[in-house]
Amino acid sequence: MSILVYTENWDGKFKKLSFELVSYAKALANELSTTVTVLSIGKVADEELKKLGNYGASKILNVADARFDSLDNKALALAVANAAKSEGSKAVVFAHNNLGKAIAPRVSVKLKGGMVTGVTALPENVDPFVVKKKVFTGKAFANIQIHADIKILTLAQNSFELIETDNKAVIESFDAGVSDDVFSTTVNETNKVTGKVLLTDAEIVVSGGRGFKGPENWGILEELADVLGAGMACSRPVSDEGWRGHEEHVGQTGKIIAPNLYFAFGISGAIQHLGGVNSSKIIVAVNKDAEAPIFEAADYGIVGDLFKVIPQLTEEIKTIKS
């Protein structure tokens, strides 16, 4: 049986997210008295694959097949389903990110499994199998029972701690059994931002709202982000006005993030904004308006002028870092 984890790689490397998935699967495997197998698709060196063993993977199925680089959803889903069948997996775990969300539903249909997306914890019970997830964009939690024999889960980012083990993983090359005619996605152009901390990876995020008054005032926030090694974000009005790109918009209809530390500067904290950031562990708010709803969601707050507070904050952090 075993539990199967599918993790993507980023230019041949895994991220913390991959190790969270394996740690979660290992804890689940312990409850179900089984082991963890990881499916890796794409070119990854053995040294890197072995790292998955440190978090509890016993076996790694390695599909070093460049055809999957186009991220063809149908082909990827078939590969994952074939791996799950070959392993006789009773559960398949994905990341709740763009690719995981794209593939998991297809795999659940192929395996006739029951799926819960965005789970935030281990199941409360494994028989019956009941897991928790956020609903209404973080305004509530639901406990959901999966009735099907095969469980398909996507794990919300930053919701499970890494657990190191002294496990050693066996690496096996795996034929995914996907013929050429299944692939129908052609990538014509890829544009990636380089040298910036990705919002979805960032442990710390600094975010600005209408309080910045215009597109020209963001230098101080960029400097703070630099000093903290933080990702940059903004509220919806800021991206709607074009002061910042829409890839920085966090909120209910933008990116949903869960960093350890989130700074909201000049953001009033509309309910739609909070929906995108309320999974942050610590929220710090700086706003001129003491009545702004952001202070109800924040752990620490300053009522004041962001143009004064941010440069001081940058200096203070430089001091403690040096």
């Binding site: 499994g113 029951g114 799926m115 939690f141 639901a142 959901i144 029972q145 708010a285 300053i302 009522v303």
Partner: peptide
């Protein structure tokens, strides 16, 4: 394949700790 067992509201949050503007 799945059913909702029940729902929960998030636990109430502790009050925001306020710091003075001049005490970053």
């Amino acid at each position: 394949k799945t059913s909702y067992v029940n729902f929960e509201l998030p636990p109430p949050k502790a009050a925001c700790k306020m710091v003075d503007e001049d005490n970053v």
